[in-house]
Write a protein that binds this DNA or RNA. Structure first.
Length: 465
DNA sequence: CTATGGCACGGATT
DNA sequence: AATCCGTGCCATAG
């Protein structure tokens, strides 16, 4: 039924529970919106301005201590440091900047997107081009990308590839900019060009998107810097610019907060909700875990408002009191959310430590339920806390938090290794045996599934390289 | 006869 | 209650 495991100071109310649960399931990006709307609608709430740590420029916590500089001196390596980190530099990755799209959001449905775009561009096109445009736009996927190749379309209409490209370019310039591209890379390049007309763009932006998209999405800025031959800081700046001004999924601007099941290929870059690092990047050192709070400063009850409430009378007092209650409820729920996240991550990083330091092969296949028991919370609490959250790992990779509960990742990773070192193509049955030798018991059928998940061809179509 | 993919069932997850 | 994932069974290809 209800979860009575929380260590709460005040008695629980159903409202309290409901709101805590909602907040828990929000990603940093959604949380930011939630907090901002609450802050705007409730005068009793106040955002206390940040105070910054003189050493590391980080925003100080409510207690005035710096989360990084005040790390415990006793470095018990097995004890991770987990803290909530308020960020005023938080930039939601899936949002357009206002100057690009001042208009109100569109409906989400793809077919509406089709007509929406056609309306914009129809006047510019002759009859034949219109036919092509309709064809292209009816083959958009949910992200606004083409699910057909230009070549196919050209053949279908018996026109030259050039003609189709021309139409595509017109479509890409329509709102949402970049729609009708083949992939995120193309979309970003189009957006970049459009912005460049009104605004200076950082040098190398184009090169980075064009040539290092995969590295960019994994946030491996150092690598990019090395390849271009410029400083890493500069690359980070450019990456920030891209994150702030461009959207790799054109159609999603209209989707609000989409939970994308992000496959490695389609996920581009995200602001993580949680950042996990090793102290000094040393895998044998202590783990540092940052839980991102997408606001600078601390949210709390407005002291002036509290005072005014005491002095007021009658009906206005009632109204103020209710705002007050809502405010304190919100603050409390927010604290509880962070507390839950903190406890969850403390356990999680300890359990998955070898995964964090040594790679995918060492991911322990734990379940949400087992962790729930250890933490003494309901399993749905874990589910909510995990769903939709993005984590940055010590190796700079961005993965969904659900990856920590992947039952098959380590198996698949070992499978990849087996196949990449095989002398002759091994059949699924043989692979199953090899896996068993390494402590993974799965059915033969499952090996086949893992193979296809990894995009590895069946044995008879593979040949040793 | 062997290797593999498709479909469906049951348990876990959401 | 709906959905996802591992697995067993079976059909099909080689």
């Amino acid at each position: 039924m209800f979860q009575l495991h929380y260590q709460v100071q005040k008695p629980l109310t159903t409202a309290h529970l409901a709101q805590t649960m909602t907040l828990l399931s929000l990603s940093a990006f959604e949380l930011k919106q939630q907090i901002e709307s609450e802050l705007a609608s409730n005068p009793a709430l106040e955002l206390i301005e940040e105070r910054r740590c003189p050493h590391c420029k980080r925003i100080l916590s409510a207690h005035g201590n710096c989360p990084v500089c005040s790390l415990p001196k006793t470095m018990d390596v097995t004890e991770p440091v987990v803290y909530v980190s308020p960020r005023d530099d938080f930039v939601p990755s899936r949002e357009y900047s206002d100057d690009m799209y001042p208009d109100e959001p569109l409906s989400a449905a793809t077919d509406n997107l089709t007509t929406y775009v056609i309306k914009q561009i129809a006047p510019e096109l002759d009859h034949k081009q219109q036919l092509i445009a309709v064809h292209l736009l009816s083959n958009l996927d949910e992200d606004g990308f083409l699910s057909v190749t230009l070549f196919e379309v050209a053949r279908y209409f018996h026109v030259s590839l050039r003609d189709v490209e021309e139409v595509q370019q017109i479509i890409q310039l329509a709102d949402p900019i970049g729609v009708g591209s083949a992939n995120p890379r193309e979309a970003l390049l189009v957006q970049l060009k459009v912005i460049a007309e009104n605004k200076a763009i950082p040098e190398y932006s184009e090169e980075i998107i064009d040539q290092f998209m995969d590295l960019l999405s994994k946030r491996q800025y150092g690598e990019i810097a090395k390849r271009i031959g410029i400083g890493q800081q500069r690359v980070e700046k450019i990456a920030n610019f891209i994150g702030e001004n461009l959207n790799p999924f054109p159609a999603r601007a209209h989707w609000g907060n989409v939970r994308n099941p992000s496959t490695p290929e389609t996920s581009v870059y995200h602001q993580p909700d949680v950042i996990i690092k090793f102290l000094n990047d040393d895998p044998s050192a202590q783990l540092i875990v940052e839980i991102i709070m997408p606001i600078g400063g601390t949210l709390s009850i407005n002291a002036m408002y509290k005072k005014a409430l005491k002095e007021s009378e009658g009906e206005s007092k009632d109204a103020m009191q209710s705002d007050m209650d809502r405010a304190s409820l919100f603050v409390k729920c927010l604290q509880q959310r962070n507390h839950t996240m903190q406890r969850l991550l403390e356990k999680l990083v300890v359990i998955q430590r070898s995964y964090l330091s040594k790679g995918e092969k060492y991911l322990k296949p734990i379940t949400r339920a087992s962790l729930a028991i250890e933490l003494g919370v309901h399993e749905s609490t874990i589910s909510r806390a995990v769903s939709g959250k993005i984590v940055e790992l010590p190796n700079r990779k961005i993965v969904p938090m659900a990856a920590f509960f992947d039952r098959s990742l380590s198996a698949r990773s070992i499978l990849r290794e087996i196949i990449s070192t095989e002398k002759r193509p091994l059949s699924d049955t043989e692979i199953r045996k090899k896996l068993e030798e390494r402590g993974i018991k799965v059915a033969r059928r499952t090996v086949a599934k893992y193979r296809s998940m990894e995009g590895i061809l069946p044995a008879h179509l593979r040949h040793a390289t």
